[in-house]
Design a protein around this nucleic acid. Structure first.
Lengths: 348, 348
DNA sequence: TGTTAGCACTCAATTATGCAGAGTGCTAAT
DNA sequence: ATTAGCACTCTGCATAATTGAGTGCTAACA
């Protein structure tokens, strides 16, 4: 028999199975399902439906004659069609807002506390990425002399993040020279988007500068390097509640646990993971949808937070595929909004 | 019978037991010991000696008629009297030096890579604390205006760390005023130790300033707060190789594992742990010597790294009490030295 | 044609049982 | 003081036996 379209009753059953499985972490059988939910059909009928759902790929059987568990495809359908956004528990939300009225902390510390809070609410591990420098504008630029042959570049972006980088000069600069350089660069860089500071633009700038001021090419190159190439490509990732994964029964297996913790240990991997997420408002990545083999027993719920109307960073929650999607999705949404608001205020 | 002083033979046996246990993670019995080590005495004699050692508190029996395992007291004796410092595998050491010739990275990134390397060599989790700001001198001080009512304080310490803090002003300052303030503070703070910037000193400074320049008290207070009270008390802790704990059989027990990972999740706890360690060259903390209940199945080996001759930060390795002390101690020593050297160069 | 009751079968998890191995403590002989 | 020998203890492992939840199939039913 050809596998037909999924009908209303199948939806109900699938939804019930997933809800139950999320709660218990156990395979669900037709008998228990018939008992706990009042569908008005017998366990035998449910059995047939479950068999169909398995054939269609929404369910799996861990072994013959065990109950069924949802497949990744099942979760995907669940997330896309079977749940609607709930709303954040208002007590949690309040905690959120209360704790972050104090804006004297600096953005780093806010991100780190936000990550902690997010995992406290969801009871899963969470991660927050710093706004990417290259997507933001220069708000303030300053050169600070340190010693004869070294210089500190301080750059404040419109996201409120302060970046700094020490560069070693080969040539000694006088106070006047530094001052001039400072004025010049500050004037030309302010309000520019960092992504527009490409080679061409900088070449042009250098020419302008050289006309008025004799300066070896080397210095300009160094400043450019310090400014654009190394740091700006990177952004910090703040982790919260790493130890919450231990509370999930699927990670009682040390092999699985090791894989995941190993990923969390490597910031660069998390960074590239975050870089591959599109800038949608919300994105759910279920099991094998993640190309990292080590995380294919996990799901991640991401949201983008923004400053004004410009996407700038990501927040996410990592848990087992058997995740409380409904709760997590609404929480992540709320926290992303709160974070957007806080950072927007801070920066503007 | 009164328990007498530990004699040479007992020492040999204790040492053998601990070595063997570190290798196998199993309780050691008299028979195996007699077989693998050629003491020239029978297992029965060893048995008697082991019984004495247990009575003296150096050994423990997990259950009746099992072999013996070392107690914390046993490990303490082992570390204090039975091992001598080995030397770092020179291939590792070389790797160390090679990878860190490049000094363009900035101190943060050096610390983070150092922590990674330390745990790669030892195969245990490691931690490195940033030099404490309050123990270092001001090398450079600069105020950067951001907007009309906010100001960035940039402070470079002689350890090469760049600290920054944004403060919100209530009063608007002109460019000239900021410039003056900058000059004034920069002049008076440079080369001062941050720990000496107490209330008295700042009061005095404020009086001097007010004589020449009309400025509301509020601003000075704000700068002082930004400078001394919040950030400087803190310092970052870099963790490396968190997932290595999973390789230790003693942490196959999820309860234990949870406790330890939970501690590693909380930077503030690690900070206070590090703060309680004296500035000796090397310090070993074994099991219950740590007052944190959660870490009493762990040992930690700490060393202090310094800039010039001034102690400035700590590095440490965390493992089970059954740790390869000899190897770890020498490695930690070597890495601390290497780090001291790198930072000294960087800052001087 | 969809639904259901009933039955045989399957498999994991739990419990019971027996056995082997490593170890101890004690005693008596050296 | 040392050692051989022996009785005893306890864990770990392997091998059933039992239980229970669950499935698939078939035949009867609305």
């Amino acid at each position: 028999m050809m596998v037909e379209e999924i009908d209303e009753r199948k939806k109900q059953i699938l939804k019930a199975i997933i809800n139950e499985h999320i709660l218990t972490a156990e395979p669900i059988g037709s008998r228990t399902l018939a008992k706990t939910y009042q569908f008005g059909i017998s366990s035998a009928t449910i059995r047939n439906e479950m068999s169909d759902l398995e054939e269609m790929g929404y369910l799996e059987q861990p072994y013959t004659s065990a109950g069924r568990i949802p497949s990744d495809k099942g979760y995907r359908f669940y997330v896309d069609s079977l749940i609607k956004e709930g709303n954040c528990l208002h007590s949690d939300y309040q905690e959120l807002l209360n704790n972050f009225n104090l804006k004297k902390q600096g953005i780093q510390s806010i991100m780190s506390s936000m990550a902690k809070m997010l995992s406290k609410i969801t009871r899963y591990t969470s991660l927050i990425s710093e706004p990417q420098l290259k997507r933001s504008k220069v708000k303030q630029f300053q050169l600070v002399p340190i010693e004869k042959n070294s210089l500190l570049i301080v750059l404040i972006s419109d996201t409120g993040i302060v970046h700094n980088k020490i560069i070693q000069l080969e040539q000694e600069l006088s106070a006047r020279q530094i001052n001039y350089l400072n004025q010049f660069l500050s004037g030309h860089l302010k309000n520019k988007e960092l992504i527009s500071l490409n080679d061409d633009f900088m070449k042009e700038l250098e020419l302008k500068l050289i006309k008025r001021f004799d300066l070896s090419q080397g210095i300009f190159e160094l400043i450019y390097q310090g400014l654009v190439s190394s740091e700006p490509a990177e952004f910090k990732v703040y982790l919260g509640g790493t130890s919450y994964i231990l509370e999930q029964p699927e990670f009682n297996d040390l092999e699985n646990l090791k894989k995941v913790l190993n990923i969390l240990d490597h910031e660069e991997i998390l960074r590239s993971l975050l870089n591959n997420i599109p800038d949608k408002g919300l994105e759910v990545m279920i099991g094998h949808e993640n190309e990292l083999e080590e995380m294919q027993k996990c799901s991640i719920v991401f949201a983008t937070y923004s400053i004004g109307d410009k996407a700038s960073g990501k927040i996410g929650v990592i848990g087992p595929t058997r995740m409380e999607y409904s709760k997590v999705i609404s929480t992540v949404n709320s926290v992303a909004k709160a974070l957007s608001k806080i950072i927007s205020e801070l920066s503007g």
